[in-house]
């Protein structure tokens, strides 16, 4: 069984834990850098990216997260996607810079514009209920990034190697297909590393 951490500084942590457990992984909440050591993958949840970044900086968490991501799978949803992006539209600097993409924060508008829409997600499946809450979207991606889903021509899910991201919240539904896909990614990576 693979062990997946959920970054637990702030946000919808418990929902990811439940979804990962339902997908056959052991799931733990990660609040400190040393907890990363024995994990096979990490989920960065939705929440407020500015609040999470401040807590990441405060406890010198940024470099340990980058080191972890160098060889282990990471899955970011909403704010987690923002933390993974190489560039953030309108800002001089980004956060972990894991995926070669430019994202825009709160790109669909304010909370009254938050919405649900059915999505087709490559490798995951059709009729996936996408829950978008003050969501970002991906403006453009580099050539090594695979676009997994679009909503009205806007990129809302992508993958680059062992990094997976979604602008919406699969953890707020009881459809665990996207988490199951990530757990499979973590299993594959673990096999590679052992071999």
């Amino acid at each position: 069984m693979v062990k997946i951490g959920v970054l637990g500084l702030q946000g919808a942590v418990r929902e990811h834990i439940l979804a990962l457990e339902a997908s056959g992984a052991e799931a733990v909440i990660v609040k400190k850098a040393e907890q990363l050591d024995d994990l096979d993958g990490l989920v960065m949840p939705g929440g407020e990216s500015t609040a999470m970044r401040r807590l990441i900086d405060k406890y010198d968490f940024l470099q340990p997260l980058k080191d972890f991501a160098a060889h282990k799978p990471v899955f970011g949803t909403c704010a987690g996607l923002i933390l993974m992006a190489k560039k953030i539209h309108g800002q001089d600097s980004a956060h972990l810079e894991l995926i070669d993409m430019t994202v825009e924060r709160n790109a669909f508008g304010r909370q009254v514009d938050s919405f649900e829409a059915d999505l087709m997600i490559t490798h995951v499946g059709e009729d996936f209920a996408g829950v978008f809450i003050r969501a970002p979207y991906i403006m453009e991606v580099g050539q090594d990034v695979e676009i997994l889903s679009k909503h009205n021509d806007r990129i809302v899910a992508a993958q680059q190697g062992h990094f997976l991201c979604a602008a919406f919240h699969p953890e707020l539904t009881d459809d665990y297909r996207m988490h199951a896909y990530f757990v499979e990614m973590a299993k594959e990576k673990k096999k590679e590393t052992v071999a």
Binding site: A12, S114, R134, H169
Partner: peptide, 10 residues
């Protein structure tokens, strides 16, 4: 309700 879920721990 999901909007409030994102505020948790904050």
């Amino acid at each position: 309700r999901g909007m409030a879920e994102m505020q948790k721990g904050g």
